[in-house]
């Protein structure tokens, strides 16, 4: 039997809800309420979470990091005003596409490094100085940032890079030429180096 209550409680269709979501994204951006916008894109190294504040790209996360957990952390550390709002990430997504297609060697994006601090942030600021297709050892990066004894701290800074791929921590290897660790896993690190060597 079709009861009045069933009709009143009938679920909204997905199309209506996604249209309302897009309106919400637009209003939130217009009213300055969208502290963090994010989207998820496909890439040769798996699904990548891209998140940006009004200042710039604040986080790139591999699927292996757990996107839900990454967003929870952003909510605690930056702001819970977070929406899936792909528009703010359009340029980032396009530049990543070009990079993975071998048509882009540097990223031209405003970055927001507010998820890292101190020495780690200093290292991350210097990483883009390692050019496309080149590699450095952890020790060489320690020297690059003017602290040659901080080899382990450089390793930590690379491992906690909030912007992998865009800030090229994958270009930092062990002194013996082996890969070393990587936030996206050894396979992703090898794939990026292989791409850049082509």
């Amino acid at each position: 039997m079709n009861d009045a209550l069933d009709v009143l409680g009938s679920p909204a269709d997905a199309e209506t809800l996604s249209r309302l979501h897009r309106n919400l994204e637009r209003h939130a951006e217009q009213d300055g309420l969208l502290d963090v916008a994010y989207t998820v894109v496909d890439s040769p190294v798996g699904r990548l979470l891209l998140a940006a504040t009004a200042r710039g790209l604040v986080r790139v996360a591999y699927a292996t990091e757990g996107h839900d957990g990454v967003l929870e952390t952003i909510a605690q550390r930056l702001s819970p005003r977070i929406l899936r709002a792909p528009k703010r990430l359009d340029t980032t997504a396009r530049e990543l596409d070009e990079y993975f297609a071998g048509r882009r060697r540097t990223f031209d994006l405003p970055l927001d490094l507010s998820l890292s601090h101190g020495f780690r942030q200093l290292v991350q600021r210097h990483l883009p100085e390692i050019g496309y297709g080149q590699t450095r050892s952890y020790r060489e990066v320690a020297e690059l940032v003017g602290n040659p004894n901080a080899v382990r701290a450089v390793g930590t800074a690379c491992a906690t890079n909030p912007l992998p791929v865009v800030v090229p921590c994958h270009r930092v290897l062990r002194a013996d030429g082996t890969l070393g660790g990587y936030v996206g896993g050894a396979e992703a690190k090898a794939a990026l180096l292989h791409l850049e060597a082509a």
Partner: peptide
């Protein structure tokens, strides 16, 4: 512990729309 607002939308969008209707 605050959850991302997106989770609030995902969980409650349908109910709020039914209430508004």
């Amino acid at each position: 512990m605050k959850t991302p607002f997106e989770n609030v939308v995902a969980e409650h969008a349908g109910t709020v729309l039914r209430v508004c209707r």
